[in-house]
Amino acid sequence: MTAETLSALANARDVAAAAPGLRFGVAFRSDAPFAGDDAPVGLAPWPPATVVDLRDADEAHARHPLADAAAIRSIPLLTEAGLGAAHPGSTLLGLYRAMISGGAARAVVGVATAVATAPGPVLVHCSAGKDRTGVSVALVLSLVGVERERIVEDYVATAGNMRGVVARIAAGWSGGGGEPHGVDLSRIPAEMLTAPAAAIEGVLDAWAAAGGAEEWFLAQGGLASDVDALRQRLLA
């Protein structure tokens, strides 16, 4: 990886790219931004007005690199799920199921609510933009009626970006400073660096068993008015 590659988000895309009929420029998803990053290609307008940061405290700097331009909302999903950033001993499916249970489930609901109601565009990110971001974006897409197949395709699309994600995390890229970001890749099981369809399908199956994503969202404390707001905002 070159310095030029490391200075750009490796796993960034507009949520609207997941399916036809969604409005661009409303919600973005990505891996973690670093200070000194180039503006991402294909995400406009940039910078976002709101950033929803799903990382734990030990993964992030004290001050978010987009704090000068955006309102930062911290929702540490793994902490809420009772898991550490490296989540040793867990399978992807087990990790994702933990994220849609208990306090973590309410946190995922909070992410969807922020996408629906916070000043936009809204950027949702974690470290890789795959697991916490993947589950959260899957909920957003489910709530606005995107087909299951397209939600799975959007999740799996991250697999092709993981080489760049891992390079940025390993380098601890910070505008060339090389500062560590609190993630020890050697502690992360190999499965956690992949994006298999079965992992997100397990989440979609759980929501289906609960009566659908909207029923699950409401059961976890979400508001019907926020579902309506999400659809009004994201559906073209």
Rank of each mutant, 00 (worst) to 15 (best):
A224H: 01
A170P: 03
T5C: 08
S186Y: 09
E191F: 06
A44T: 12
G102I: 02
L193R: 14
P88Y: 01
G182E: 12
R148Q: 13
P40C: 15
S174L: 05
D14K: 04
V166I: 15
G172T: 05
C126E: 11
A27K: 02
W216A: 14
V122T: 10
D205R: 12
T50L: 13
A171V: 04
A49R: 15
E153R: 09
P180W: 10
N161I: 01
E215S: 15
V111W: 02
V144Q: 08
R231V: 00
V146M: 13
H125S: 09
V203H: 11
T133H: 06
R233G: 02
D131W: 13
Y155L: 08
G84N: 04
P48H: 14
A39V: 08
A224S: 14
V108K: 06
L93S: 07
I75P: 02
A104I: 04
P121I: 00
G36D: 12
L204H: 12
L95P: 02
V183L: 15
R150P: 03
E153M: 08
V166A: 15
A116L: 10
P47Q: 14
A157G: 11
D53S: 13
A49F: 03
V122M: 07
A167G: 10
T194N: 12
E149F: 01
G212Y: 00
T91R: 12
Q220I: 02
A171N: 10
V152M: 07
S174H: 11
P119A: 14
E147L: 07
F34L: 13
E147Q: 15
F24K: 09
A57D: 13
P65Y: 04
A105V: 03
A167T: 09
V26A: 07
T158W: 05
G129V: 04
A86E: 13
A213M: 02
I75K: 04
I188F: 08
A19E: 11
V144K: 01
A171W: 01
V108T: 10
A159R: 02
